[in-house]
Nucleic acid binder design. Structure first.
Lengths: 207, 207
DNA sequence: AAATAAAGCTAATCACAATTAGCCAAAGGA
DNA sequence: TCCTTTGGCTAATTGTGATTAGCTTTATTT
């Protein structure tokens, strides 16, 4: 039931592995358990399926962003500040971010699909940068800004702190996307990065 | 003259913008100034052109890597150590790396092409990670290792230092690939990142 | 229960794009 | 100069893969 949704899932699955142009509508149909022409009862073209995926993922993202205020437009609760205040707290935060992005099926597939299709239109390029970089940086800037204000970390440029915190995580993530068998090794690096980061920005610490 | 080479150039140009599957052989031919069937006097198929690009770029890369010992297997000269020792030295090094990768035509096009095609085969995924991440990290680890040994920087984990130095640079690079109009803004961030990085790893510095 | 809509199927169609056939002109070595 | 190779062209060929036509069945509405 709900074939329309199943089509999107199957298509995302295939697009994320092979790219839009290398997927046949017949493949999508087969994955759903119907024949190719039947797809056209639900979507008017292959492109239309692709666009629907984008719209759906945008919607999800914006919903998430609104509740988590991940788009950087909102303050943190005291509980959140507290949990990010310690080295272990930041490790936990980094890991959960990393793990979610890496293992959540939709998130990973959508990221891979956008990676492949990002140069196809400027809109996709912007979406990519917004979702995976700019918004994350804004959100984390907010956190670091608070941590500095409260004297928990030193530093006067939260934006750069966010860049330095986030980009290694993101890089390790994309490496796992390409070579999943390296996950263990790369997770170890992730932890070392975060611990080092905290020590660097801790007051009076000498590494 | 040397149509064979011109074909590779034109193909790389197109593949890097639209991806392999979205480029017609007729387009490549037109860019070269010949008709599609004439291409087959030089390469036996479209795929063959793609493979030739990969081989050519691999060769170039290995040549470069050998002379620069960028693959991390070689020591630095004293002059290089010296030039990397100061804040301005590292800024310069980061900028020249960034600028080369961003503006060198072949380098940028090849990176974009690999980005699009990376999930097509495991070989391409490995090539991507090797060229743009692992080798850079090894190389920079070597540098930071030296700088630490000589007491110029503090820190005991050159690999993580390299990760923290390199990944923001790489992230800003990919952002410029997607949205070239942001180059100025992103270059400013690059400089701030490097200066901050040096201060963090400087002995007895208080940000 | 009749009527209509929704969703599936098989069998075309249609378009397009890679590749091959076969011809011709220029280049260059014997 | 003749012969062969090289690289180009036009005109097929071929395969394929998205989409449409038109029919059937199932579900929904009245």
């Amino acid at each position: 039931m709900n074939t329309k949704k199943k089509i999107l899932d199957a298509a995302l699955d295939l697009f994320s592995e092979k790219g839009y142009a290398n997927v046949f509508v017949a493949e999508i149909a087969e994955a759903v358990g119907i024949k190719a022409p039947s797809l056209y009862k639900h979507y008017k073209s292959k492109r239309d399926i692709f666009n629907a995926i984008i719209e759906e993922m945008k919607k999800n993202y914006n919903r998430q962003a609104a509740t988590l205020s991940i788009d950087g437009n909102n303050a943190m609760s005291d509980a959140e500040v507290f949990s990010a205040a310690s080295e272990d707290g930041l490790v936990k935060m980094g890991f959960s971010l990393f793990s979610f992005f890496l293992h959540d099926g939709y998130t990973q597939k959508f990221r891979k699909m956008l990676t492949i299709e990002q140069f196809h239109t400027p809109e996709l390029a912007e979406l990519f940068t917004k979702q995976y970089i700019d918004d994350s940086l804004k959100y984390q800037s907010g956190i670091f800004s608070l941590l500095c204000e409260r004297g928990i970390l030193k530093g006067n440029n939260p934006q750069i702190m966010a860049l330095q915190f986030h980009s290694p995580i993101y890089m390790l993530l994309t490496m796992c996307d390409r070579e999943p068998e390296r996950e263990k090794e790369l997770t170890a690096l992730l932890e070392q990065h975060i611990r080092q980061f905290v020590r660097l920005y801790s007051k009076g610490d000498h590494l």
